[in-house]
Design a protein around this nucleic acid. Structure first.
Lengths: 284, 284
DNA sequence: TCGACTTTCACGATGCGTCAGTGTAC
DNA sequence: CGTACACTGACGCATCGTGAAAGTCG
């Protein structure tokens, strides 16, 4: 936080710095560090890396810095603040106008990186919130629930997956689903809750895999399953059929789902199969 | 990305894995790695850390994993995905019910950390966007502009600073400013643009510090300065006075501004002084 | 002479990637 | 016998923090 305090100097000593440090044009490493708000260690590190060399070295080997270095350090800290690595900063500052890495491109690139990271973290935050919500409602939560929530929320289907899923739905269904989506997952909180419900149900079904699919317990689980499916299908039998066909096809050797989609459904496949069995037992 | 590909095996070999890996209850490190989607190196690393020990070690020293380890690895990966460090994960998983680190607290804690990080990154993204916007309008941008933008946008005043600034404004002014704020910085983009304008102007004034404050150039800069100040004061003379008094007091030894506020204004102090001189020259 | 300041050297932490050299299984 | 797989050990990355031991400044 504060280089001054960290170096536990006597109060008031302040590296023997005059009232206005700008009166001096040459600073020792300690003065320069407090002036610029970094640690001595950082300056020595930057020196060895060749990122910020002192203006001069005294006879005794002391590093001496001047205003040029202060300016360069500001640039370094600025680039560091927007997330550039020291290596990148060095390249940018090294070639004054050699033009291999230009500032505009660097800015665009960093903004992309930062924005991607934000999206990522937002998904994680949402998943944690969903897990907490689940925890509050049920009083407990399992790792596998959190795992499923994370998978559901952070799942970003590849283009192949999107294409693959498309083939099971008619154009109209696709349209209708796209329009219904906002009400199905009204907002972040709603979507998180649904994800949590799914995760919890899958965990419960997994725990019941060895029971009789015709038993009341299994039937109750199947009921809850269909309620959640109903949120998505909105009672439309056609959509339900498409959905079933799609999930049944994931491991069809003739038309397998893309790897990311298979990975996505892998953990819930046993549960889905069990629910199918439960529903089949109901019919007969 | 893909442990399989990275380990450049012959296609189809897949670590000699059977069609359905769950048919086997014991796996070599390579099979286990592809099964769980991590690298061999990661598994060895977790082993040495004591985070995930193999179920058995073969006579030849081979690590052999089984379903228990697969489950534990899932837990590890889940916690890692929400940002826990390996050390934390180890502590959480170690004490089965020793209850020193509980899941609910961990979730809350991680959500806080993630949300704080998001805020941070959003400020950075906003600052970069402002810099890019500036770049587009002016065709160039200086490091010091970016630096100022970053300072303006990421500035989070301490409580001391908030208290300190309060004393210069009447209760009514404070109220009015708080209400006017939404229109002054309507949205992120607007705020970023204003920040960029300030940053650019400060950079320009800094470049003109050695010119005559009465010169037309300096007067033009002062005009632009007052326009930006006007965005904040909304033409209210009382607010302008309060603002001037406040900035004049930052380095008043009897009532100095808090350190973070001084740090915030340090870079723009010379520019402010110059503008004051320009305005004074105008009056006489 | 004393203490604040400086130097270099070197280990630690994070989460693995990436050799290098060698042994094992099929 | 070949080769895919496994092992251990060690260095590298990024960014310093935190001493230790010793020299310098005023």
């Amino acid at each position: 936080m504060n280089a001054q305090l960290k170096r536990k100097q006597a109060p008031g000593s302040l590296n023997s710095m005059p009232a206005n440090p700008r009166d001096w044009s040459i600073w020792s490493i300690g003065q320069f560090a407090t002036l610029a708000g970094v640690t001595i260690r950082t300056l020595r590190f930057y020196d060895r890396k060749g990122l910020l060399r002192p203006a001069k070295i005294s006879e005794a080997g002391y590093r001496l810095y001047s205003t040029n270095e202060l300016l360069r350090l500001q640039h370094i800290l600025t680039l560091k603040a927007i997330g550039c690595s020291l290596r990148t900063i060095q390249m940018v500052l090294e070639q004054t106008d050699n033009a291999s890495v230009q500032l505009p491109e660097l800015l665009a690139q960093q903004r992309c990186a930062v924005e991607a990271e934000i999206k990522n973290l937002q998904a994680v935050a949402q998943a944690i919130a969903a897990a907490e919500e689940q925890l509050q409602r049920l009083g407990e939560i399992s790792y596998s629930s959190i795992h499923t929530i994370l998978k559901v929320i952070t799942m970003q289907p590849s283009k192949e997956s999107q294409e693959w899923t498309k083939q099971f739905f008619t154009g109209e269904q696709h349209q209708a689903l796209a329009e219904a989506m906002p009400s199905y997952m009204k907002n972040e909180a709603e979507g998180a809750k649904v994800a949590a419900d799914w995760a919890n149900l899958i965990a419960e079904v997994n725990a019941a895999l060895n029971t009789d699919p015709a038993s009341p317990t299994a039937q109750a689980l199947a009921d809850r399953w269909m309620v959640l499916v109903g949120l998505f299908t909105q009672g439309d039998k056609g959509r339900l059929n498409s959905l079933n066909t799609m999930y049944a096809s994931t491991d069809n050797p003739n038309n397998p789902a893309p790897e990311d989609f298979q990975d996505f459904t892998a953990g819930m496949k046993p549960a889905m199969d069990f629910v199918q069995k439960a529903l089949a037992a109901r019919k007969s």
